[in-house]
Simulated assay, not measured.
Amino acid sequence: MDLMEIIVLAVLQGLTEFLPISSSAHLILPSRMFGWEDQGLAFDVAVHVGTLAAVMIYFRKDIVALIQGWLTTGFTRHPNADGRLAWYVALATIPAGMAGLLFDDWIESNLRSTAVIAATTIGFGVLLGISDRLRHGAAGLAEMTLFMALIIGFAQMFALIPGTSRSGITITAALLLGMQRVDAAKFSFLLSIPLILAAGGLKTVELVEQVTPVDWQALVLGVLISAVSAWICIYYFLAFINRIGMMPFVVYRLVLGAILLLFFV
């Protein structure tokens, strides 16, 4: 990989992991437009490490509070707000985790096409727009219930389909359940931590089993660039989401999906 490939792919991974615009749709475009080869498993692991580091650093105080709440009151009849939210994050992770173990290979073989990614980019983009238009109430994380957490968790299963966007589908579900935008996004970001950790761990195991040489300079750059871009993305997304809403991302998805359909299918 040359320097331009490293920068473009790491920035794309850092941004699209958390914006509701689909990472798989974006990672297709550079290879199709510039004829780049697959970046390889080692680089995938590196950018996963970068995005995981970014979200954990950004939410470090929340993570500490969730762990403390879970350890001190999580196993009592009346857990505090942090202990309860920690359980919600854990339980909402299970559906997508189970679906990934059962269907990941089938999805990789049958649904990873440009046509599928274009269709899901458009379809789930429209659904995101509808959820933002129809959103009602202003529930925050303190008002979240187990039912809400599980619905968001089951919605997250659709993110296994390329082009859906993990953050997009979880925010869509949260908005439809009456959550306010910032808290919907925050829960989506917290929910990403165990999944990114699991995905990165599985890719690391696969990498260890390989005997191909590793370009450590590319990996270090990938970690750093994806971490910085992901942190910036989280910061500005949460800062402006109430002001701009979801429609800019919906329009962007529609345009991106149309480009994929017109030029790459």
Rank of each mutant, 00 (worst) to 15 (best):
E5A: 00
I6L: 00
V11A: 10
G14N: 13
T16P: 11
S23P: 06
A25H: 12
A25S: 15
H26K: 07
H26L: 07
H26M: 06
W36Q: 01
W36Y: 09
E37H: 15
G40Y: 06
A42F: 00
A42R: 01
H48L: 03
H48N: 09
V49C: 11
F59P: 03
I63S: 02
I63N: 02
I63F: 05
A65L: 12
G69D: 06
F75Q: 08
T76K: 06
R77Y: 03
R77T: 09
H78A: 09
H78D: 03
R84V: 02
W87T: 07
P95K: 05
G97K: 02
L101F: 08
N110T: 15
R112H: 14
T114R: 04
V116P: 12
A118W: 11
T120G: 07
G123H: 05
V126M: 01
L127T: 02
L128H: 09
D132V: 10
D132H: 11
R133M: 12
R135V: 08
H136D: 09
A138K: 12
G140L: 12
L141E: 14
E143P: 15
M144F: 07
G153D: 09
A155H: 04
I169G: 08
I171Q: 07
L175E: 00
V182Q: 13
V182F: 06
S188Y: 07
F189A: 10
L191W: 07
S192K: 00
L195D: 06
G200E: 13
G200N: 14
E206M: 13
L207F: 02
V208A: 08
E209D: 14
T212Q: 09
T212F: 01
Q217G: 04
V220H: 00
G222L: 01
V223G: 00
L224K: 00
I225F: 00
A227P: 10
A230Q: 08
W231G: 09
C233N: 04
A239H: 15
N242P: 12
N242I: 10
I244H: 03
P248K: 11
F249S: 03
V250R: 13
Y252A: 14
R253V: 01
L261P: 13
F264R: 05
